[in-house]
């Protein structure tokens, strides 16, 4: 083994100098990828003069929370609140429905491979393709610009993802554990509640966080199906692009408000990140 290690000459090697070089490259890459995020953050903290300064200001003289104050005063933060309500409620419902369905697929192979594939294929349809009939349906029901409309749509939109991911997490639990609970005196529901759900709790949590992020970030449905009352934050961001003038400060500030929750969500997910974004293809 150690012989092989000595002869090994990889692209990015193992010696101390190589390690330093790799570290430097890694830092450079990180700077490139995070610089736009940094720019967004400092833009939200700049004064009006600093935003429209030439050359651009890389570091504001003071952290100016004026724009955030304006967002609160004008009630624009309402969009964040809307996003929060819509994403949370739709996530909870999608998780309940989806986990039940996933259990059925994982444990009984309900409908065989084709049902599973049909379910996830629903996820692949571009929103723009289905949004018009949905729009008309919502007009009939009076759901345009309402919580209930967008929540229902997001439940449906995220359901395939929840089912697909939870099926994988449940399949990871050996069926014998559940059977053991059954012989130990559990009903099927007790076995779920006392054994399956506790064992799948990290998977449930990770899936819920991703579902929340998807709903939180969604734009096309929200733009078309809302007007003024339940605008979500990405829609409101685009409203700041005016025909004559663009409200950079507000764009940046609202974007920051809309990005912070995602930061925290991702920070909690480390171990499940890969599995979540690869739709279960990589178990990480």
């Amino acid at each position: 083994m150690s012989d092989a290690a000595i002869h090994r000459k990889p692209l990015f090697g193992r010696t101390r100098r190589r390690m330093t070089a790799r570290f430097a490259v890694a830092v450079l890459i990180l700077i490139i990828f995070l610089f736009p995020v940094y720019w967004l953050f400092i833009t939200s903290l700049k004064s009006a003069a600093e935003i429209f300064a030439r050359p651009p200001v890389w570091y504001p003289a003071e952290f100016n929370l004026r724009t955030f104050a304006v967002l609160f005063k004008d009630g624009d933060v309402w969009a964040i609140y809307n996003s929060l309500i819509i994403a949370s409620v739709s996530t909870v419902v999608a998780m309940v429905l989806g986990t039940a369905a996933a259990y059925s697929l994982a444990r009984f192979k309900t409908g065989g491979q084709n049902l599973a594939i049909w379910i996830i294929s629903q996820r692949m349809i571009p929103p723009i393709v289905i949004v018009f009939p949905v729009f008309l349906m919502f007009v009939w029901f009076g759901w345009i610009d309402s919580y209930v409309g967008l929540i229902l749509l997001y439940i449906a939109f995220n359901l395939p993802y929840v089912i697909w991911m939870m099926r994988g997490y449940i399949e990871d639990i050996p069926i014998e554990v559940e059977e053991s609970a059954l012989t130990d005196g559990c009903s099927r529901w007790q076995a779920l509640r006392k054994i399956v759900f506790p064992m799948a709790r990290t998977g449930i949590f990770a899936t819920a966080v991703f579902t929340f992020i998807f709903a939180w970030n969604e734009f096309v449905f929200a733009m078309i199906l809302t007007r003024t009352e339940v605008l979500t934050f990405p829609v409101l961001v685009t409203h700041y692009y005016g025909a004559q003038s663009t409200f950079w400060a507000k764009i940046a500030a609202l974007s920051v408000l809309g990005t912070l929750p995602v930061f925290f969500a991702v920070a909690t997910l480390q171990r499940f990140l890969v599995r979540g974004i690869s739709m279960g293809a990589v178990k990480g």
């Binding site: 014998e176 059954l182 009903s187 054994i195 506790p198």
Partner: peptide
Amino acid sequence: MRPKDRDVAMVFQNYALYPH
């Protein structure tokens, strides 16, 4: 009759311990 009502105890090949 459901397993819970049969009053049997079972040991599984992979032990099936409750990990939590």
